[in-house]
Amino acid sequence: MGLTAYAAGRPSALLVGVPGAAAVRLAAEAEVRRLGWASASSPASASVLVVCGDPGPSLAAAIDAAWNGVPSPRADVRLSSPGTVRAALADVPATLADLPGQRASAVTGSWRPPAAAEPEHGHGHHMTGAVHGLAMAERADDRDGLKLDVLHLPFGPVLPYWPDGLQIRMAVQGDVVQSAEAAFLDPSGPDFWDEPGARRRAAAHLDALARLLGVAGWRAQAERARLLRDAALDGTPAATLLPRATRFARRVARSRTLRWMTDGLGVHARLLARLDATTTALAHLDDPEPLPPEPDVLGVLPSLLAGRDLAAARLIVAALDPRP
């Protein structure tokens, strides 16, 4: 029993953000960090699913699909306000260590694709029957004029280092994106980041930088960006904040590996611009002058993703960081 309690005290958590409710996600991230829990990259490696906000119907359906992939013992936490985070996460180890309860609710049985998964377009002529109830992929010309399988893959909303609530439906051949449609699932109310103020703007940039660095695989600096973001929102005086942010920006901008990885995609230029915008916003914390509005990038995203491979596509999404 002691061993179960020990293991249940250190679960790995998968956080799902809800558009507009970034405040809840920030509180949950901070609490997960304080508790020393690991962050999971997929439902299969998670034991706690933390939903940060009140999802609308289509986001809730996606969260349910992800929840079905979390193996027992498991716990799901639904947070609706930042104030409830600490108490809700404190209950998780007890839920995970409750062996009779976990046993009774343990998931068994094989997953079957729902009937809705049938492709609705019937113009293909290479349907070679179904495998496990799923149709085979249809073929289409690729950029070299070869017939190749086309897979339709959704990216988001339950994905680490991904904008809250964003879903991009991609048609891919091999690992090359042929076309993409981007939309936010159930965007509701004013966005947390849209509130005026240089502090809020700097924090929004740091949040986006954390996502980009996380996708690029530089987890240490991603974590640093998150700590800086939380410090900016907590009202830390500019005199202590600015030197830290400048050091962080210099460190990230100087990295040759990061430049090699992201150059040629337009990602590195955007990274540098965002680092610059962050330090500028932090330098003008007490300036009452309103900042220029952020450009809307959701519309141009599909055209930028077409022709890229999936790794580049994720970097581009993280660099543009669209918002509802």
Partner: peptide
């Protein structure tokens, strides 16, 4: 052990697969 086996869907970040992922290699 818990009775039965668990079969889960592929992880598509909250989506359901539309086609089987069995596919031909690029030439």
């Amino acid at each position: 052990g818990v009775r039965g086996t668990l079969g889960v869907a592929p992880f598509l970040s909250g989506g359901v697969p539309r086609e089987h992922a069995l596919s031909r290699f690029h030439v």
